[in-house]
Each structure stands twice: as structure tokens, then as C-alpha cells.
Design a protein around this nucleic acid. Structure first.
Lengths: 91, 91
DNA sequence: TATGTATTTAGACATTTGTCTAAATATAGA
DNA sequence: TCTATATTTAGACAAATGTCTAAATACATA
């Protein structure tokens, strides 16, 4: 869970996820949406990848990234449990 | 959102939330569950407080902390939208 | 094979973060 | 008012983080 929250703790990386939820994109397409260097975006993608928040496939010269929902489901579950359990104990 | 993800990006603070979902606790009770100094736990509580993830009331010498679900609901919504939108676009 | 495009890797650096100890503040109760 | 308890604040420091530039790697195509 640590590595996932670390990956989510950055506005640029969260924006990348917001973009990828719409459609799969290459590293370059993603980088074009930001003012940061390609190396910086590549680094962010690596963090997302290691947190298992995105997956990637090579297509010729391009590397296509897509969002990965498995871990997001786990996080969502943890948060919902915080909310629900709190409400339980309030009754 | 930044400040919330920053607050969630620490195992100790997430554990504090896990404890507070069960029942409200004083700063000292919380600190007793960890090996860290009280000052360190106090610092973590401050971060959670500023992220609006917990609230606190003074009761005599004690300060009682409780979990605050409003912001958690927002985070939950953001994550669910990532998941759902991705699934939409996969169809 | 040579060249251009796409992407990552390496290394550097300033900023942020988590922790500590020591000191300060606030409250309860004798 | 004095003392003990609860908690926070201040200041320091090592480790982690986000960014950059320059260089390396991988692939496509002439």
C-alpha cells in the first residue's frame, strides 16, 4: 500500500492517471501535456508502473501506457472501510 | 487534494486512521500504540488535522481525536471515477 | 548501415519529510 | 500556588523526492 500512496502523492502523477482513464497514451503523448522534461515524465511513469497503477506495452518505437484498476480497487476498499467503520461506531 | 494525499502517504498516519475508525482517542492513547516519540505522533496528528482527515476537541488535559469522513469521501469518489471511466472506455 | 525519433537512465541538486531531543504551554488537583 | 500529567512547538538532521541536463538505448526507415 505504501508504494501506491507514494505514487498517488504527486499532482503530476494523478493528472497522468486522469488522462489515462480516458484513453491509452504513449509516453510522448503524455509528456506533451506537461511543461516538464520528458525525463521527468518518464520518471513519473516509472513510479506509477512500479506501484502497479499503470501497465505498458511496446508498440514499435512507442510505449503505450494504460491505467490499471486492480490496485485502485484495493485503495478504494480501504478508504470505504475507514468511512463505513467510522459510521458504524457512531451509531 | 494535494494535502490529503500527502497526509495519507505515511504508514504511521494511515495506522492512526485505522485506529480512529474504531473509536475516538486522545493523543496519548494514540502515541502509546507506536514506538515513536510523542512529539513525532503529535506532528503526524497535526498533518492529519490540516488535511481535514481528523478533528479534535479538548477534554480537560486531553485532546480527543476523531476521524473525519468528508475528505475521505472526496478521495473515494476520485478513485472510483478513475476505475469507472477506465471501464467505460474499455467497452 | 546511417539517421532520426521515442524513451529511459544516470547523476546532480535544492526542497521536503520523518524523526529526535529539549523546551514550552495547558490543565488538574493537592 | 505548586507539582504532575498531557500535548505541542522549536530546531536540528539524515533520508527521500522532484526536477533538470546529458547521455544511452531501442526501433523505423531510407
Amino acid at each position: 500500500m505504501n508504494i501506491v500512496f507514494k505514487a498517488l502523492n504527486d499532482q503530476t502523477r494523478r493528472s497522468i492517471l486522469d488522462m489515462l482513464k480516458e484513453k491509452d497514451m504513449s509516453a510522448g503523448e503524455i509528456a506533451d501535456q506537461f511543461e516538464f522534461s520528458r525525463a521527468t515524465i518518464s520518471h513519473h511513469l516509472e513510479l506509477l508502473y512500479h506501484a502497479d497503477l499503470v501497465s505498458s506495452v511496446k508498440k514499435g518505437q512507442f510505449i503505450i501506457y494504460s491505467i490499471n484498476t486492480t490496485v485502485l480497487n484495493e485503495i478504494s476498499k480501504w478508504i470505504v472501510e475507514l468511512i463505513d467503520n467510522k459510521n458504524e461506531n457512531k451509531k
